[in-house]
Every structure is written in C-alpha cells, then in structure tokens.
Design a protein around this nucleic acid. Structure first.
Lengths: 334, 334
DNA sequence: GCTATTCACTTAAACGTATTCGTAAATAAA
DNA sequence: TTTATTTACGAATACGTTTAAGTGAATAGC
C-alpha cells in the first residue's frame, strides 16, 4: 500500500510547518515565492493531491455544483449540460447531475439532500409535475440557486429563460399564414411560467386573427408517457385539427406516429411544429419545423450567473435573463 | 443565520455522548434500540443532515461514483447514464459526470483528479482518440473501475460490452443478402476492442461471401467532426458503394446528408445501417436500420458490478460481460 | 537610536464525523 | 457466591485541511 501524500508529508520533507505548506499551495501572500516554489515542486514530484473532503470540511467550499433536470436523454437538457460543464470546467468545478424523471417527490428529495453541504450551488430546471413552489422558496434561502428554462415566476432567484411567449406566438402565426384554420395545442409545463407563456403566445396569435381554441383541442401532457400518444390520437380523431403545436419535444414524435396511424399526410392534412432541439429534425419524414431554444447558451448563462453569485459579485436575484429561440421552418409546415 | 445541526447538537439535546449519537445514526449494534429511536426521532425533528465531507474524511467513503463518457448528447450514453443512475439511486449514491468530448488529454486530467478520494469508484467509456492505455493500467490499480462499451482489451478490470463482432457480422450479412456488392465501412474506435471487433465482424461476413474491401472503402472517424462529412462524401463519390455500415451513431446522419447532396436514393442507390440508439431512427427519411445496443442495461450492469466490487463481493476483475445488441431492419436497407 | 511596521513563518485550534479502546452495570456461567 | 461474559455507552483521537492568532527578525519611519 502506497502512503498517501498529504500536507504533512510535504511539510516534513521540506522541514517547514504544515501551515506554511497549506498556504503555499493556496498561493497565499504570506509565503515567500522561494518557499512556494519549493512546495509546488515537491507537490508535483510526489503527485500530491489535496483531499477534497478535508478541504471542504474546513473551508465550506466544495468546488461542486449540482444540476437538477427532468431527463438527460433529451437534447435540450444534454446541450444545456454541455454549456454548464464548459463554464464549470474553466473554474475547475465538478458537476453532479440529478434526474428527476419529471417526478416532483424525487426532486424534493434531491434538493433536500443537497442542503448538507455537498455542493456550493444548484442549477435547476423544474419537473413538469411540480405544482407547488413552497419547497423551492425555502431552498433558495439556504443555497445559491439559478433556475433555467423551466421556472416559477414568484421565486426569489435568478431565472434564465427563452422568449416563450414570443416564439409560441410567431409559431402560431406561421401556421395561420400557412392557411391553418384549426390549430391544436399540446400543453405541458402548465404549472410553470414557461408553459403558461407558451400557451399565452398561442392564444394571442389566435385571438389576433379572430380564431379560437376549445378545450377539446388542447391536450395536456400526461405523466404517464404512454398515455400521451393515446390522448393525441383521440384529439386528432375527434377534432380533426389541421395543425398541431407541441409545447415540448417529447410530444412531437407521438404526433408523427399518430399521423401515420390515422393515415394523415404531414403537412398536407396536418401541419406540425414543436419546441425542440432534436438534431434529427431536418432528417425526419417529413422534416420537422421547430422552435429551437439556444440550449447550450442557456446552460452557459445559467452557470455563469451561478458562479457570479458564488463569487458574491452578483446582487440582483430577481433579474430575468431571456434568450431568443429561433423558428426553423421545415417541411412539416410547408 | 440558522445554527447547523450536527451530532453535537443531538448529543447535547439528548444528554448522551456524540459517539453514541454517531453510532445510533449508523444503526450500530452497540446501541440499544431505545436510544437509537430517540436519536432518530430527534434527528428527523431537527432535520439533521450528516455532513458528507466530515463523514468522507473520517470513513474514506464518499457515496459518490464518477462516470466518464465521451459525450452526453448522445442517446447511447444518456441511456447508459439512466441505467447507472437507477442503480446508484437505490444505494443512495451520487453520480458525478465528466465528458471528455473525445479528448484523451481531458480524459487523463479527469482520471487523475479523481484519485484524490473524491469518489469511491469510476465507470468509464473510453474516448475514441485514446490510443494509449498505460494511464488506465495505472488507474485500475488505485481505484475500482468498470469499463463499459468502449473498452481496452488488455486491462485488469471488468468490462461490459456488447456482441460487437456478431452484430457487425449479421448487419453485413443482412446487406449482402439484400444484394449489396460493395459495402463501405465507417471505422471508429480503431484503438479499442470495441471498434476492432466491429470491423472484424464486417470483414468476416465479406470474406465468407467471397467479397473484399479496399482501404478506399473504409473511412476513418476524424476527431474534427466537420471533416467526417467531407470524407464520407469523397469516399461515396469515388468508390460508389451500394451500402454503408457505420460503426458509430455520429457517422450515420452525415451519410443521410451525403446521399441527399449527391442525389442518391436510400436505399435504392445506397443502403445504410448504423450502430445507433437514435430514438428517431424509425421516423427518419427513410427510417434507419440500426444495430441497437442495450444501453440502459449496459449502464445498469456496469453500475451493479462496480457496487459489487465496492462491497468486496466481486473477485473476478477480468470477467467480460457481453450483452446482446439487436439488428432492427428498417427502410434504409430494404 | 528607538519605535513601528512589515515579512515570513509557526502554533494550535477547528471543521463534523467515525472508530478504537475502555468501563460500569447487568446478566450468565460456574 | 464468585467469576466470566455481554450490553450499552463514553472519552479520546484521528481523518487532512484551513485559518486566527502569535512571534521573531528584518526593515522602515522619525
């Protein structure tokens, strides 16, 4: 068994105190360059690695952040993580990832467990089934948190979102201008501003063109994923819309299957448009018109701000950062 | 500022020693059920949370594992992570995720940094650009490691893979039986058994049918992702194969773009088959024939075995676990 | 030339937990 | 009854850092 090399080892070897070693390793002004250099050299030679637990325990800094997301197997979130990771790596931070699988109890369990000092801060995109934000209100009082994409409105924390209202609005207009008379909507994230804004944008566009929607044309996202396909199919069968707007990516592919099943031609019989970051969108049959969110940038921005908060260089917890999504028109709406 | 509640708090409140509290919390046989119950109740009431750093420092257990993968924005890996996570959560373990972005220097930096006692074990799927396994040979001596999917052959560690040879073989046969005379191959993971086996399966099938491949028909994966498209295009233009087998998912979509660009009909002019876990494979234009790996199960299996090793209940470091992939025939090869 | 300050370092305590060793009382064995 | 064993707990230490406070020597200020 190899002896593990600690500050003590270095101190003994160099005949100086462990305090000096520690300070040298932290590049403290109290230590002469000469001594620092000796310490650094020996540390490198002996492959010294600072013990993170001991360091955390003493300094209350973990150099770790947590990312809580609904699902990793989703292009939007994996791209966001990439953005987060890019920023985290620059600061030598580690990233713990927690998936809620859209389950708000799991979400609560995670946030609770993160209060033990395991991480310095948290980035979170709320589960769609979370309908109570009391828990988050408590959370943000105890640890720095930045919300991204799926956010609550009345919470004292920085939020990074996209222009949900505007993009849903212009997507709807795009369909109307394409001649659609009956536009169905797949509603998700009902409890979050994110979902509300998207729906509001849809409503607004309809209204402006003297159109209306009925409840029957709106399918609500079901926790039970298998039910979504059935619900969409039922709605399309009975309502016979000529277009569908899906407010989340997960509901877009079921639309394709439904159209196939019901023998409907896309876009001839049914136009489809979805919030999505699918990289196969251009290769689908037919290619899918999407509202593409700047996922990577959202991740970067969120992480960036979290670090600013950790550095105590940020003081406006209620600022909303809104990035722009882009409507990418493809065959499914042409 | 709220006082943080520690074992000391509990001890004082209950008028017992902190040793007793600590032991009670760990459900030690040394403590009476009565006392344990009192401690547990108070702990719950005061929302006591064990400080992970202190606990790690003392016990040398972090309850954390690291997962090192090339890319998170890839269905195979995100599904594998889901499998890993499912197992980890059952054991109340935390999961640190590190992406190498196929860069072996970053890979080395990560593994090095994980030697500081930040995690109890590591799950790793090697970067495609890693051509030297010396570093891993050192690593596995110092910390429990399980390799999955992308693995080296001569390393003293458990490896979880799929039947790469057999599945590449049957994929190739599928094409031959479909009448293909000139089957090109997109070669990746050249340095790993994973890649070698796949290529060998392809070779074997060709050979059995008296067919040959030339170097010109084999395109090697380029670190510079943008080049892959160009290389495939050049190969298809000059060699005019009637089929392509892609040994990784990342090279499948470029084939679609190349076919489009060169005005080739899939599958009429060019059949395509790829190792892939794309969930949009059935919806592509045309739908893509895939060799689908059991990604979720691979993750579960890898995590499962890592935990067995951590429990010291596993003693065969060289056992290979091979799961079966499935060939899913779709329009791109029919 | 004397005091005040800076420099470079050390001592010692703390962070919160786990664990070894010891012990008094209760129980069992003789 | 005496001795051995078990039960239930406590005292004290260690894990590897960081940091507040202290110190002697060198330098600066006047």
């Amino acid at each position: 068994m190899k002896e593990t090399v600690t500050v003590k080892t270095l101190a003994k070897e160099l005949n100086i105190s462990i305090a000096t070693v520690s300070k040298a390793l932290n590049d403290s002004y109290e230590i002469s360059l000469e001594t620092k250099q000796k310490v650094w050299d020996l540390a490198k030679k002996l492959k010294y690695q600072r013990n993170p637990s001991a360091s955390n325990l003493r300094s209350h800094k973990t150099k770790t952040i947590a990312v809580i997301i609904p699902e990793i197997a989703n292009n939007f979130f994996s791209l966001a993580i990439n953005g987060i990771e890019e920023i985290a790596r620059k600061r030598d931070y580690h990233v713990l990832i927690y998936q809620t699988h859209e389950n708000s109890e799991i979400e609560i369990a995670f946030t609770d467990s993160l209060l033990s000092g395991r991480v310095d801060g948290i980035l979170i995109s709320v589960s769609s089934n979370t309908n109570n934000n009391e828990h988050f209100k408590e959370l943000v009082k105890k640890i720095p948190v930045v919300f991204f994409d799926r956010v609550f409105e009345d919470i004292d924390a920085v939020k990074i979102t996209t222009d949900d209202y505007e993009s849903a609005y212009s997507a709807t207009r795009h369909l109307i201008e394409g001649g659609c008379k009956k536009i169905a909507y797949l509603f998700a994230l009902n409890n979050l501003v994110t979902g509300k804004n998207r729906f509001a944008g849809y409503q607004k566009a309809l209204e402006e063109h003297g159109m209306v929607y009925t409840d029957a044309m709106v399918v609500n996202y079901d926790k039970d994923i298998s039910k979504n396909y059935e619900n969409i199919k039922a709605m399309v069968s009975s309502e016979k819309p000529d277009a569908i707007i899906s407010s989340i990516e997960d509901l877009a592919l079921p639309c394709y299957y439904v159209a196939r099943e019901l023998n409907l031609n896309i876009p001839g019989d049914l136009k489809i448009i979805s919030f999505s970051n699918l990289n196969t969108a251009p290769l689908l049959n037919p290619s899918l018109t999407t509202i593409e969110q700047p996922a990577f940038e959202i991740g970067k921005e969120a992480a960036d701000i979290l670090f600013k908060i950790l550095d105590k260089k940020y003081f406006d917890p209620n600022e909303n950062h809104i990035l722009k999504s882009s409507l990418i028109k493809r065959e499914s709406t042409s």
